[in-house]
């Protein structure tokens, strides 16, 4: 029997607390692979967000700081300024990055902090049980917009890549998805890119990953993948929004 793939060495567990069908587990693996391939585990300073990924320190075998909700880009800024030779990874969800931490991400990006940001967009608050997020689609039902999000009174979902691309000090912005093997591979490449950018001293780089939350969305894992394909991709087009070498 040939072993095609094994668990990345930087990942400490083979079972996460993530729900069945959740995208965080896939992204965790991709991050682990990238860490192993680039050999950066011992240089890595990781910020764990508030939300489902709060327990990242149980999964990735590196120095970790668990941040207050939305503040990881400010914490990461300080980590990087103190240790410019270390590798700072910011991991945030949509509530964390695009709601309560909007100021922190915009200003870290605007200062051009040389950090790598993984932004997991699953259009809901997963940890608290599926409430409306800044990226919840119009019409999408959540526990705090039970009749579906309406533009009137709730506005439209925020497109973070597009918004950050207006800031001149951002160097790499890409939106990917993990709804298919092909897109998972593309996501892996994007993660490698934002990691490599920091190692090359290029500057603020972020990948936004459209991810499934079947439990929060109250659908089956298969339907969750379909939701990304049929709904999210229309509103959140995949692609590279900024690439400054």
């Amino acid at each position: 029997m040939n072993i095609v793939k094994t668990q990345p060495k930087s990942i400490t567990t083979d079972s996460t607390k993530y729900c069945p069908g959740c995208g965080h587990g896939i992204i965790l693996r991709l991050i682990g692979e990238a860490i192993d391939e680039l050999g950066i585990r011992e240089r890595m300073l990781l910020t764990a967000p508030v939300g489902c990924a709060v327990v990242l320190y149980d999964y990735i075998f590196c120095d970790v700081i668990e941040c207050a909700h939305g503040r990881a880009p400010a914490v990461g800024t300080a980590l990087k300024r103190v240790h410019p030779d270390k590798f700072v990874l910011i991991y945030q969800g949509d509530g964390d990055l695009a709601a309560i931490g909007t100021a922190e991400i915009i200003h870290a990006a605007n200062r051009g902090e040389n950090m790598s940001v993984i932004f997991v967009n699953n259009a809901t608050y997963g940890m608290t049980g599926g409430q409306m997020a800044p990226t919840t689609l119009v019409g999408q039902k959540t526990t705090t917009c039970p009749s579906g999000r309406t533009i009137k009174g709730m506005g439209k979902p925020i497109r973070v890549c597009e918004m950050l691309s207006t800031l001149e000090e951002t160097k790499y912005l890409e939106r990917t998805s993990i709804n298919s093997v092909r897109n998972i591979n593309k996501t892996k490449a994007a993660i490698r890119k934002v990691f490599q950018n920091q190692l090359n001293g290029i500057g603020f780089s972020m990948v936004e990953i459209l991810s499934m939350c079947p439990v929060g969305w109250k659908v089956s894992p298969v339907e969750a993948v379909q939701f990304i394909e049929e709904q999210m991709l229309n509103y959140f087009p995949l692609g590279v929004y900024k690439n400054v070498e």
Binding site: A68, V75, A78, L79, E104
Partner: peptide, 25 residues
């Protein structure tokens, strides 16, 4: 290192980060 932070909230969280990184802040 001096940063004029975007907010008081960001400033104290930078303090959190720098302190965790092991320096006086």
């Amino acid at each position: 290192v001096f940063i004029q932070a975007e907010s008081e909230v960001a400033a104290i969280n930078m303090v959190f980060g720098a302190s965790a990184a092991g320096v006086r802040v």
